[in-house]
Design a protein around this nucleic acid. Structure first.
Lengths: 352, 352
DNA sequence: TTGTACGCGTTATCAT
DNA sequence: ATGATAACGCGTACAA
């Protein structure tokens, strides 16, 4: 019954029962004070006498007054909105981060404005212009292609949180994930399992994280005294098809291998499919490790061993950091270290 | 070289090179006309002399003037933004729809405001309040839990496009997908393959589409003269784990089956994993069909046969329909009919 | 502590 | 066809 009532109330409110434009001025009139006083109470800009405050609070409640963010933005310069530049709104990885951002932002009364740059610096710049024209109070840039310099200049005008790079500048906070270490962990895992012929499917080298992961792979090999074999490296582009084709080329090359480390989960999925098509079983014939720990990794067949990236946490942290920047504080948060998740796609090399 | 230059230009623009607040008034002054004339040119509100128009156009270009949507919203009542109520910003299905919405909207100069209702009517209502307070020009509601009545009332104040229901009301356009037919197709496919003992994993019955899919399953059975067997129906909740558990219960029940139809792909993925764990091969031992055709379906092992839902098209259509509503036109678009995609997870029953 | 008056950047309504 | 002027709803110096 309680539930039913509250649902009804919600629906009515959504339907605009009391929405017909209640303005701050009307609240002021209803409570017998000046508009500025109402504004002050709303923003906590100054101390007001308890009685007036009570009167205003009541008037606000009775009239169902909701401040108009538009007018607020025009007048005060604050819009309580922050722009979020992502690459594709439907990315399996960044999608989770967006959720984290949304959560933290809405807690603080802010609204996110999502735009997609599609891995294109020009488009990103256009997006940012849109965001700025909408007077966002701050910006979160998820990775992206913009130059560090562009970001620096941008941060002079608007607080910026950027992920996927190391960067220091006034008004800017960078959140970086240790891709090198993640790749090292993954490769080391395979090595520890006895594998020596470990193929690597790279990401598109235009992504800095892709080259870092490649370095991590080589570093782990070197640390184990295993020779780096270029014939085992197949270029990929971070999506399923490229992983699939990489493995087909690998098999066709006749270069023997017992394990594959793909620079991200999507390519690992493609790789798994290619192996399946060629009659190779995972992990019986070939061990497979991915990177990112996408939502699907735990439910793929077989469940994929991978490096966990806390995408949700990344989003939350980006949001709270920006909030801190907005409050004039200095963010100090950092991303959790990469973590190896061992599932069923990797196993010890059977000494055949 | 061209590319490098444009990248640079983009970066500079993003960095706010000419952003320092060029106002409409400044454009007016620079081109020797009144602000009203500039506004008219911008909005096509009235006919202006070609020479003035040219002067203004040039001034706009030179100054790099960008109209301020905030002020626009305050003055004109239009914000060129539309609210999009989704259930979870990182949904593998709706994410694609969001991309479609974003594409069409931005073409028309509109910006989407995404909010997540988390399958909760109260939260949805709150989201809509936020959206309304931000003065969105229109609303797109992806499925959701709001009552039809609430939506109707809402549409009186703001144009609304809603998906996942049949509904007619002034200012409202509904886009519905034929879930019944889709489920019928899927089941019929299995039937045509010779399967008779076809298990069904349901979606959460609070979702209308889930019950429609269930109906489609039964209708196909009946049409083929196959008895409906309740013991083959396992309740699921539309996510992977529920599909996995459903299949485990099914196997434990010892009720024989040769095929599984899951009410969505996510549960089908879970089902595939459960079968794998129990040593059952897909499609050799059990045929499996999903519903939705998520991005991952084509790359799962084995690739999943499923019913294609044009999520991207859904998003685009929702957006263009809203745009039509906003223009005072009557949308007429409709979703493409369900389409069976046969991949490798289903095959003819071997008469063992 | 509280109120007055002005400005934010644009569109709409009048005149001309 | 064009320009002046008044809103739009709120924040904020400034004055009281």
């Amino acid at each position: 019954m309680k539930s039913k009532n509250s649902l009804r109330a919600a629906a009515v409110s959504a339907a605009g029962a009391h929405s017909p434009k209640v303005t701050l001025e009307m609240v002021a009139e209803a409570s017998g004070v000046s508009p500025s006083t109402v504004s002050r109470i709303l923003n906590g800009t100054a101390v007001v006498s308890p009685d007036k405050r009570a009167a205003v609070d009541q008037a606000i409640a009775e009239l169902g007054f909701i401040p108009n963010p538009i007018a607020r933005g025009l007048a005060g310069g604050r819009t309580l909105s922050v722009g979020v530049v992502t690459q594709s709104i439907d990315s399996p990885f960044y999608g989770v981060a967006l959720r984290g951002i949304e959560e933290e932002l809405s807690k603080a009364g802010y609204s996110p404005l999502f735009v997609s740059g599609h891995w294109n610096a020009e488009e990103e710049a256009r997006c940012i212009d849109v965001l700025r024209s909408r007077r966002v109070d701050g910006l979160i840039v998820l990775t992206g292609r913009l130059s560090d310099d562009a970001l620096r200049v941008l941060a002079k005008a608007t607080p910026v949180v950027v992920t996927g790079r190391k960067l220091t500048a006034p008004g800017l906070f960078a959140l970086d994930f240790d891709n090198f270490e993640g790749a090292r962990l993954a490769t080391h895992h395979l090595l520890a399992l006895g594998h020596r012929r470990i193929a690597f499917i790279t990401g598109d080298p235009v992504h800095p994280d892709a080259v870092e992961r490649f370095s991590g792979y080589r570093a782990a090999l070197m640390a184990a005294g295993v020779n780096f074999n270029p014939a085992l490296v197949m270029p990929g582009k971070y999506h399923e098809d490229s992983g699939l084709m990489a493995v087909e080329r690998l098999i066709d090359s006749a270069e023997p291998f017992t394990a594959i480390f793909a620079a991200n989960d999507q390519m690992a999925f493609g790789a798994a499919l290619a192996l399946h098509r060629r009659g190779l079983r995972v992990p019986d014939d070939v061990s497979l490790v991915g990177f990112d720990d996408l939502a699907g990794a735990a439910h793929s067949v077989p469940p994929l061993s991978t490096i966990h990236q806390a995408a949700h946490e990344l989003g939350r942290l980006a949001a709270t950091s920006l909030l801190q920047l907005l409050a004039g504080e200095t963010p100090t948060g950092a991303l959790p270290a990469p973590r190896l998740i061992v599932r069923s796609s990797s196993r010890a090399l059977t000494s055949a």
